[in-house]
Design a protein around this nucleic acid. Structure first.
Length: 205
DNA sequence: TAGGCCATCTGGTCCT
DNA sequence: AGGACCAGATGGCCTA
């Protein structure tokens, strides 16, 4: 498992999320980098079956080019939708706002989101435990909720690679690769409860 | 100038 | 058959 490997097995397919409203194909501005359009269609589906050879004979160059442009446009739109979703994710992530903070890269956004979810899960678990303890009159002190263990085990040794434009921090407990490290992303969360709760503590183990 | 990040094009595969 | 998804290739832009 490298720093960049992400477990996404539990993530549902995003295709149902997007509401594709774009009804106008974007004009084709960039010429093809690879080979000619006709050749590409003839190679499509791979092994040159009789069916595909027949298709390639029936389609003239104009049709091939129109089809290629249509496919390119769809793919472009698909990537734009994906980027819009990533922008939406960035908006709800902590810290990644403000003029002095560089926009998170795609990989950094995904890794940060994963870690944020893990941290929230950890926080919820500790909260539940605390509530349970309070209800049982067994509270002695208020814990500090920290990032997940795997998160806390990571440290950054790289200086100057933080997404934050004006940050020179060299270490922070993050799950992100060192170059994405930023101490503001996952600060420890201190629980502050009413002092009256402390009256339940005397008889605790 | 090298490396990172990104947009785009493209062909292959799978699904409806 | 057509669309969605994916991964590889390529070139441009930016930053250290």
């Amino acid at each position: 498992m490298t720093d960049y490997e992400i477990d996404v097995t539990s993530i549902a397919s995003p295709s149902s999320v997007f509401s594709c409203s774009s009804d106008e194909m974007q004009s084709e501005g960039t010429p093809s980098i690879m080979g000619g359009e006709g050749e590409m269609i003839n190679r499509k589906s791979g092994n040159g079956s009789s069916r595909n050879r027949k298709i390639s004979k029936e389609i003239n160059d104009d049709d091939l080019q129109r089809l290629r442009l249509k496919i390119n446009s769809r793919e472009r739109k698909r990537m734009h939708d994906l980027n819009s979703a990533l922008d939406g994710l960035r908006e709800v992530m902590p810290y990644s706002h403000g003029p002095s903070v560089r926009k998170l890269s795609k990989i950094a956004t995904l890794l940060l989101a994963k870690n944020y979810i893990l941290m929230l899960q950890n926080s919820v678990a500790e909260m539940k435990k605390l509530v349970s303890d309070v209800s049982n009159h067994r509270v002695t002190s208020f814990p500090t909720i920290s990032p997940p263990t795997s998160f806390a085990n990571r440290t950054s040794t790289t200086k100057g690679n933080c997404p934050c434009a004006d940050c020179s921090s060299t270490s922070s407990p993050m799950l992100l690769p060192p170059r994405f490290a930023h101490p503001a992303i996952f600060p420890p969360i201190s629980l502050k409860l009413p002092t009256s709760s402390s009256q339940h503590s005397p008889n605790l183990p």
